[in-house]
Design a protein around this nucleic acid. Structure first.
Lengths: 201, 201, 201, 201
DNA sequence: GATGAATGAGGCTTCATTCAT
DNA sequence: TATGAATGAAGCCTCATTCAT
């Protein structure tokens, strides 16, 4: 019996998952490479067979996770044609991901922002692709006469993302006991933007 | 005759300003204490006469800058009573700060990201106060029947801040030549939230 | 039918040649075992089937190359009986080797430098044998009354080798365009030592 | 009372001397930076206040020592005008230095050669200046009709240096008990080159 | 024999902080 | 107050070597 096809990338993803956990727990700078190695059950040096260095590990996580996210977003929006409904689904999808993959969200939202490389040098194509799904919804809605034509899709897109992202961060960083209901947040954000961009207002 | 009061804090504020610049340029972790000292024109050790350590320096900046911001926000909103108008003024004020003082935007970014994870026990009271001005606008608007009563002020407050903050960051990070008009961004964000929270929609 | 004898050592010599190149290019310490493996077209681990470790690989090169050199020197000096002529032939031979096989010069350099300090217990017998050919020429010349009897063969032998070796290194290190004629160097070195050791002077 | 002027470079030279000892004892690659620090009585980090890195430390030793050597050579040859005598004094001086500063000689001769930077990238100006003193002696001798005009000063200069250097290395590396008389070596090398280059031969 | 992924010890270097002047 | 040389803990990363396949 041949090994499962993902056997080959097995160790790589073991490391990736371990890194997500450790980064989420301790933060990028406090996380020791050896912590990640121990968590992954590999030797320190093994990490460097798959990643150039610690920062590359962080960026790789971003790339991989965003790619996955983008795919799943496509699935979540499949068959949904009404722009308004698509906005709702988008918010719902985003917050659901955050809730279900808290560690990933934490790394994507908190740690990544602290990485200079990320903020300054790195161009997050995948993030743009993700956001542009929203931008396209706005333009489609405008074409359909649902959203006001003077809305700038660039501005609304980043606003929408900023709103979701900030709420997600607050949720992620909040202690378990005083965590607000995230699906309610999804609903409210979606509603604010739908009405906010709507023509009837 | 006692020395002029600001004489005493002269060197302290020189250091603070230098630190703002350096932190904004390189980020907290990449910034070396000696960079800040050089920029401030003092010796490394001098910094430790005014601040307990590097982290304390960062926190002091937060405190000072946020206090100032809060004061100025108060001035900007003075005499403006209509909740809708107050939202507009808030957005306008925030983006104007970002434009006029690039470092403010970055400081806010950093604070948000670091305060909860890196600085476990630090509570950014001043930031909350800043945001709560918006929260109160929402509640006032609800009381006046202008905003829908089911809007959660916590959610809308963070959404609003996230939207503004993300746009600010995009503006800060964008190259000078292709910078979008920041005051237009202010208008659009304000409009989306005003309409989005409004009862008539 | 047994495999051809060199079949058995085929891979070994492939590795040896690759190692000579890599050591010559980067030096012993800078050379990675994996560089050698790649150059040889084998896996890293394969090297350890033929050599105990990296150091052993270096020593084996010494042994093999010096053995060859010694043999060829014998051939070059065959039938030449006059000590003076033998000195000339020796120099000629040495520089010809350097020119035709650049790596040999570097190997000798490395050996000399490393053998006594880095490889505490290694005795470069073959190198000594090579040099002693010159020592013997001196002693023969002295017996024949051609060279002064107060010349110490140890001192003259190392001097001669040092002179040739240093010139060889300069030649090897010099850029192709401004390379001095190496055979002229051979002539001059030989002449200096012949006259320098001669009785008539 | 003001501090002695060399107070300022005190620690730097303490480190340099310690490095010479440790490099001579263990070799460059085996020497740990912490070994040098301990020997110098400073913290590891202190070394990096004076030197860029470990290799820079080695090269700095070379620069400093060669500069000193060059100066002292000038003194040793002062007032000696006869080219023949100058050759004798040169050899004498060189070997005396080796004998009196064995650790320095060991570092300069053995370790330096093993440093890739040195051999490939670095242009040892000071060494050339040192050698050119010999080159000039040759040319002066030729002008005076003492040395044969067909001698190439470049070739003879490197030969001479190679001869001395190789002998010096053999002396430095040899065990105390079987160390040959170095001043006798000086005499013989000088004599070989003087006669070897002479017109009468 | 051949492979090459995995190992893991250990060193160079950084930089926040101190303290004698 | 101010200095800045000195400290030294601690982590990222390299790479020779092994061993299961």
């Amino acid at each position: 019996m041949p090994p499962a096809p993902e056997r080959k990338t097995d160790k790589r993803s073991v490391i990736t998952e371990a890194a997500v956990d450790v980064f989420a727990e301790k933060g990028f700078h406090q996380a020791r490479v050896s912590d990640i190695a121990r968590r992954a059950g590999v030797a320190d040096g093994t990490i460097y067979l798959y990643f150039k260095n610690k920062e590359d590990l962080l960026l790789s996580i971003f790339e991989e996770k965003m790619e996955l996210l983008l795919e799943q977003l496509g699935v979540a929006l499949e068959g949904v044609n009404d722009p308004i409904e698509r906005v709702r689904k988008f918010a719902e999808f985003h917050f659901r991901q955050v809730r279900d993959n808290r560690a990933v969200a934490e790394v994507l939202q908190v740690e990544l922002r602290l990485s200079n490389k990320f903020l300054r040098d790195y161009r997050p194509e995948k993030l743009w692709a993700y956001l542009n799904v929203f931008g396209q919804i706005v333009r489609d809605g405008q074409a359909a006469g649902i959203f006001r034509p003077d809305i700038d899709s660039f501005i609304s897109m980043w606003s929408f993302f900023g709103a979701m992202d900030e709420l997600a961060m607050q949720w992620v960083l909040s202690k378990k006991q005083d965590r607000f209901p995230i699906d309610e947040a999804a609903r409210q954000v979606a509603e604010i933007f739908i009405r906010g961009m709507g023509v009837t207002a």
